[in-house]
Write a protein that binds this DNA or RNA. Structure first.
Lengths: 143, 143
DNA sequence: TAAATTTCAGATAAAACAATCCGATTAAAA
DNA sequence: TTTTAATCGGATTGTTTTATCTGAAATTTA
């Protein structure tokens, strides 16, 4: 099966977008996120813990606790979530799996795929969470 | 860990490019392919068996047997190998993992990522093995 | 202080993926 | 016909990813 981002990373991006969409409501409980996104509660909880360690989200323990974005959504990018969970190796490794594919000894698709990879990287880097906010709210409502 | 194609698919693409580069020499043994590409012999053997079932490569059993491309390299595309091994779901499923992301109810990055996906698909579809042949030979020699 | 509710942390289980093993079958050559 | 060398096919093992479970710690309210 072909995959782009791991489940952890997908759920992490979904959760962060959810938090951005619900930012005005203070902290959000894992139960709410998991129920809305229909993903395993304990799993997304672990992911939010690691995103807390990465400084992307902030947690509040105890009664009426939960999670919120740690920074303004205008400075959080999807690439930050990817970097925190999956790492950025996919933007730097050979799509055919050749271990020593470099600009000097490129694989047959090195140049063409490189363009694509740069496009993907720039897309995830330039767009910040606040740009997705409205879209995300609409999306969440349709789930 | 982020991944684009599975190991099976990577090895499959590598093996097919190897066969294209060695087409003039008749059949090629799995041992040769595995040794040159530095991938597990039994694993790549299984992959070649499935590519045989898909009609992309042909096998010759017994002494002096081995594998060769089943068609002219000008009609075999990398997307054919991807389709046979990993399937094409990645070109049709949401990059954020939203289960019901559609043009009507798109995820926040649906449109931008869709462009990228189309580019990737077209690239893998339009380029045939013969175009990679010389590059592959060079590549194989540097491994 | 006690009760309620939440995150945190570690262990474990289940599933998917990657790799290996082994004997059977096939085919060419001596 | 026997030997040799290759693919084929099924079962098995190992590793990583995904998911779950349980109890501790933290925080608010009564």
């Amino acid at each position: 099966m072909t995959v782009i981002f791991s489940k952890k990373c997908e759920y992490g991006m979904q959760a962060v977008l959810y938090l951005a969409a619900h930012q005005t409501e203070g902290v959000t409980r894992v139960d709410d996120i998991a129920a809305t996104l229909k993903v395993p509660k304990e799993f997304v909880s672990k992911i939010l813990q690691s995103l807390t360690a990465s400084g992307i989200v902030a947690s509040k323990k105890g009664k009426f606790g939960g999670f919120a974005l740690a920074k303004d959504p205008s400075v959080i990018r999807l690439i930050d979530v990817v970097a925190a969970i999956d790492g950025l190796e996919m933007f730097d490794s050979c799509v055919l799996g050749f271990p020593n594919c470099t600009p000097d000894t490129p694989c047959p698709v090195h140049d063409t795929w490189g363009e694509l990879r740069t496009l993907a990287y720039n897309m995830l880097t330039e767009e910040t969470l606040d740009k997705f906010k409205q879209k995300t709210i609409n999306k969440i409502k349709t789930i």
